[in-house]
Amino acid sequence: MACPELIKLLGLSRRQALASLTVVAALLLARLLPLLGIAIIPIAGIVTGGAMTATSLAGRRFNDELRARRGEVEGALALARGCQATKR
Protein backbone atom coordinates (compact mmCIF):
# COMPACT_ATOMS: atom_id res chain seq x y z
CA MET A 1 0.00 0.00 0.00
CA ALA A 2 1.34 3.42 -0.97
CA CYS A 3 2.08 6.13 1.55
CA PRO A 4 -0.34 9.09 1.65
CA GLU A 5 2.61 11.39 0.99
CA LEU A 6 3.26 9.68 -2.34
CA ILE A 7 -0.40 9.85 -3.30
CA LYS A 8 -0.40 13.61 -2.70
CA LEU A 9 2.43 13.99 -5.19
CA LEU A 10 0.27 12.54 -7.97
CA GLY A 11 -2.05 15.58 -7.87
CA LEU A 12 0.74 17.90 -8.90
CA SER A 13 -0.54 18.62 -12.41
CA ARG A 14 -3.88 19.76 -10.96
CA ARG A 15 -2.00 22.10 -8.66
CA GLN A 16 -0.08 23.55 -11.58
CA ALA A 17 -3.29 24.17 -13.50
CA LEU A 18 -4.95 25.75 -10.48
CA ALA A 19 -1.95 28.01 -9.88
CA SER A 20 -1.88 29.11 -13.52
CA LEU A 21 -5.61 29.76 -13.52
CA THR A 22 -5.32 31.78 -10.32
CA VAL A 23 -2.57 33.98 -11.75
CA VAL A 24 -4.43 34.61 -15.01
CA ALA A 25 -7.65 35.35 -13.10
CA ALA A 26 -5.79 37.82 -10.87
CA LEU A 27 -4.36 39.55 -13.94
CA LEU A 28 -7.83 39.78 -15.46
CA LEU A 29 -9.40 41.11 -12.25
CA ALA A 30 -6.67 43.72 -11.88
CA ARG A 31 -7.32 44.72 -15.50
CA LEU A 32 -3.67 44.20 -16.36
CA LEU A 33 -4.67 41.75 -19.08
CA PRO A 34 -7.39 42.53 -21.63
CA LEU A 35 -10.29 40.10 -21.89
CA LEU A 36 -9.27 38.93 -25.36
CA GLY A 37 -8.20 35.46 -26.40
CA ILE A 38 -5.23 36.89 -28.27
CA ALA A 39 -3.90 38.20 -24.94
CA ILE A 40 -5.09 35.52 -22.50
CA ILE A 41 -3.80 32.45 -24.37
CA PRO A 42 -0.13 33.50 -24.62
CA ILE A 43 0.01 34.74 -21.03
CA ALA A 44 -1.63 31.54 -19.77
CA GLY A 45 0.95 29.55 -21.75
CA ILE A 46 3.82 31.54 -20.29
CA VAL A 47 2.53 31.11 -16.74
CA THR A 48 1.92 27.37 -17.25
CA GLY A 49 5.35 26.94 -18.82
CA GLY A 50 6.94 28.64 -15.83
CA ALA A 51 5.06 26.34 -13.46
CA MET A 52 6.21 23.30 -15.43
CA THR A 53 9.81 24.47 -15.38
CA ALA A 54 9.70 25.08 -11.64
CA THR A 55 8.18 21.65 -11.06
CA SER A 56 10.81 19.99 -13.21
CA LEU A 57 13.64 21.73 -11.38
CA ALA A 58 12.12 20.87 -7.99
CA GLY A 59 11.75 17.23 -9.05
CA ARG A 60 15.37 17.06 -10.15
CA ARG A 61 16.51 18.63 -6.90
CA PHE A 62 14.37 16.18 -4.90
CA ASN A 63 15.85 13.26 -6.85
CA ASP A 64 19.40 14.51 -6.31
CA GLU A 65 18.77 14.88 -2.58
CA LEU A 66 17.35 11.36 -2.38
CA ARG A 67 20.45 9.99 -4.08
CA ALA A 68 22.77 11.99 -1.84
CA ARG A 69 20.98 10.93 1.35
CA ARG A 70 20.10 7.37 0.35
CA GLY A 71 21.34 5.87 3.61
CA GLU A 72 19.19 8.20 5.70
CA VAL A 73 16.11 7.44 3.60
CA GLU A 74 16.64 3.70 3.84
CA GLY A 75 17.17 3.97 7.59
CA ALA A 76 13.99 5.98 8.05
CA LEU A 77 12.01 3.52 5.94
CA ALA A 78 13.44 0.61 7.90
CA LEU A 79 12.18 2.26 11.08
CA ALA A 80 8.77 2.85 9.44
CA ARG A 81 9.18 6.62 9.53
CA GLY A 82 8.45 7.18 5.86
CA CYS A 83 4.73 6.58 5.98
CA GLN A 84 2.20 7.95 8.44
CA ALA A 85 -0.14 5.03 7.73
CA THR A 86 2.26 2.63 9.47
CA LYS A 87 2.13 4.59 12.74
CA ARG A 88 -0.83 3.27 14.72
Rank of each mutant, 00 (worst) to 15 (best):
A39T: 04
L29I: 04
R15K: 14
L57R: 15
A51I: 04
I46Y: 00
R61W: 09
L12M: 08
L27A: 11
N63M: 09
V47L: 05
L57N: 09
I41P: 00
L27F: 06
R88K: 12
Q84W: 05
I7L: 10
P42K: 01
E65F: 06
T53P: 00
A85K: 14
L35E: 04
R70W: 07
P34S: 07
E74A: 13
Q16A: 07
G71H: 13
L28P: 06
L32Q: 13
G82K: 02
M52G: 02
Q16C: 05
L10R: 13
S20V: 06
M52K: 10
T53A: 11
A17E: 12
A85I: 08
L36C: 03
S13F: 04
G45I: 01
L36M: 07
T48C: 03
M1T: 06
A78N: 15
M1C: 03
G37Q: 11
G11R: 13
P42E: 01
G71M: 10
R70D: 11
L77S: 10
G11C: 03
I40E: 00
L29C: 09
M1G: 08
V47D: 04
T22N: 11
T55S: 13
A54K: 14
A85Y: 08
A58P: 00
M1K: 12
A85C: 11
L10H: 04
T55D: 11
A30F: 06
P4V: 03
L18R: 14
V24S: 01
L9T: 07
N63D: 11
L79K: 15
A80T: 11
A54T: 07
T48P: 00
L10K: 12
T22S: 12
I46G: 00
A68G: 08
T86N: 08
V73T: 14
S20I: 03
A76N: 14
I46Q: 00
G45W: 01
R88Y: 03
I38Y: 00
C3K: 10
P4N: 03
P34Q: 04
G50Y: 05
T53W: 07
T22P: 00
A58H: 01
M1N: 06
L12N: 11
T48K: 12
L33Y: 05
L18M: 10
E72T: 13
L66I: 12
M52F: 02
L57P: 02
R69D: 13
S56K: 14
